[in-house]
Simulated scan of single mutants.
Amino acid sequence: MTLQTMRAFLSTDVSLSNEQILTYYSKRWAIETYFRTMKSNFSFNGYQIRSTVAIKRFWTLLSFTAMFCSVTGHGDILTGLRSWQNKKAESRIEFVYYEAKAGTQLDLIKNQLQAA
């Protein structure tokens, strides 16, 4: 065992055995990483909602989106998210290409993409 592989787990419940602490921690770890993913990739921490109903609705939408990304990413939320982000980028590029090919003015394309 090296210093890089050593881990320390603390618990305020002194009645728990080492195995119980590790079991609880391993279950909790999945929850922590899920919330970190939701905050950093799905902007969960970017909204300030005050009503309980709005929070529940927003959380429901985020949970559905995460589930959808997980299914399309073959079990990995971030793989699914990256796939949809790539598809969106490809769609925008195709839109610009076909509009330019049709002779649409650049200012109009920018306006349609809300980039102007």
Rank of each mutant, 00 (worst) to 15 (best):
F42Q: 00
N45P: 04
I31N: 13
N41L: 06
N41V: 02
L10G: 10
Q4I: 14
N45T: 11
L16K: 04
L16S: 05
T12A: 10
Y34E: 01
E19P: 04
Y34G: 01
R28T: 06
A8T: 11
R36W: 06
S26D: 14
Q20D: 08
L16C: 04
F9C: 10
S11Q: 12
T23M: 13
N41P: 02
A8W: 06
T37A: 09
S40K: 11
Y25C: 07
S40M: 10
L3K: 15
S15I: 06
T33M: 09
M6A: 05
Y25P: 02
W29P: 00
E32N: 06
N41W: 00
W29G: 02
Q4A: 09
T37Y: 03
G46D: 07
N18I: 06
N45L: 03
F35C: 07
D13W: 03
S11P: 00
M38D: 09
Q20F: 05
I21K: 04
L3N: 14
S15D: 09
F42R: 00
T5A: 10
T37I: 14
V14Y: 08
S17K: 14
R7E: 04
N41E: 11
R28Y: 10
G46I: 00
G46K: 02
M38R: 10
M6H: 13
V14M: 10
V14G: 10
S15P: 00
L22Q: 12
F35W: 12
E32K: 13
S15G: 03
S17V: 02
L3M: 11
A8M: 14
N45A: 14
D13E: 08
N41I: 01
K27E: 15
T23W: 12
K39S: 12
N41Q: 15
S11D: 15
Q4Y: 04
F42H: 01
E19R: 15
M38S: 11
Y24P: 06
D13L: 05
L16D: 01
Y34P: 00
S43G: 03
T2K: 10
V14I: 05
I21V: 15
R28H: 03
Y24W: 10
A8N: 07
T12S: 14
N18D: 11
M38T: 08
F9Q: 14
Y25K: 15
Y25H: 13
I21R: 02
R28E: 11
R28L: 09
T2E: 15
W29A: 05
L3R: 09
M38F: 04
T12M: 09
E19G: 08
Y25R: 15
S43A: 04
L22K: 11
